[in-house]
Design a protein around this nucleic acid. Sequence first.
DNA 1: CATATATACTCATTGGGTGAGTATATAGCC
DNA 2: GGCTATATACTCACCCAATGAGTATATATG
Lengths: 184, 184
Amino acid sequence: MSENKHSGNLSPEFALLGFLISGQSHGYDLHQKFTTELGHVWHLSQSQAYAILKRLETRGDISAHIVEQEKLPARQMLRITAQGRKRFFEWLELGIGTNARSIRLEFLTRLFFAQLHRPESISQIYKSQTDEIKSSIVKLETLVEHLPPEQIYNRLSLDLRLQQLRLIQNWMAEIRTQFHISRI
Amino acid sequence: MSENKHSGNLSPEFALLGFLISGQSHGYDLHQKFTTELGHVWHLSQSQAYAILKRLETRGDISAHIVEQEKLPARQMLRITAQGRKRFFEWLELGIGTNARSIRLEFLTRLFFAQLHRPESISQIYKSQTDEIKSSIVKLETLVEHLPPEQIYNRLSLDLRLQQLRLIQNWMAEIRTQFHISRI
DNA sequence: CATATATACTCATTGGGTGAGTATATAGCC
DNA sequence: GGCTATATACTCACCCAATGAGTATATATG
């Protein structure tokens, strides 16, 4: 029913994985990259970044090995594993969110990494996102239609969500032209 | 910087408190009420409702006493305390969110309970919300202005957030006429 | 007579998120 | 020389959000 339901893939973890596709790195650097490149898309505190990386490691999506440094504290060098790579590209091409927030966050992140690692599948990714939006607009429209008229707060909420989705459609159309994404 | 920062007041806990203003009740019933009245504003699972109520109790915002029933399981009858009442009305008149999601969620919830418990302060609540939106639009606009042109994903993100805030302004203007809220 | 639905609540687990702390190095400033 | 700020690199303790499943009983419906 609602967007609070977290689908499990709305999280910066795939972004961290995405940065590791380009080569090994460590927590501090990944957080830096994240902040400068996607800092206004979503926020990730340093401690959160480390927590997510720890989780990715226990799951086997990345592997860590310590690199001593002469003066500064030791680094945990992180590499993406085959499994992590697999999960990342699955997310890149399959993962879709349906609410305004997750679209802004996830779609932009996906676009960013698709540009980097899979430019050839951008139009596919774009299409599945717009399709998802269209279908969730339809769902919402029928929901609103059948809503008892006395439920004014529920109606106001659904109305706004609908308008937000339509706004996102326009915003995405803009992106299509900006990125020269072909229609399929 | 970002909206992920949870301000601590984006939570259905005040809604539960709000239902208890009208009189004592118990977890099951509160969750029912919540779902039928605000179920499309935000989602609250049963177990979440119980978890929040537990927290409110340990904080001293509500008090519980067990009422045995002949056949069905015992109820935990819940009453709002003086402290809880105070916290609720503070939230009602002071709490404001600044991102699209929290506005939809929190503002509608506040409006709902203000209608019920404090109709005379609706225009004040409305005004502080619209003021907040206006100022966060200004903030975003200057942010976008000074954003280095190469940060295209950050720009797209901020652009969408700006457009969403403007959409919310229109949506709120609609609410003003619907609820006959006077300008102050 | 079986099954679904309503009543009423509990528990274990995962994940999101903050804020502060630890420790060292270097660069700039007065 | 001494002070402070900033950068590097990571850890820890804590709290809140959220799900999903489980427990147990009663009543209504086919």
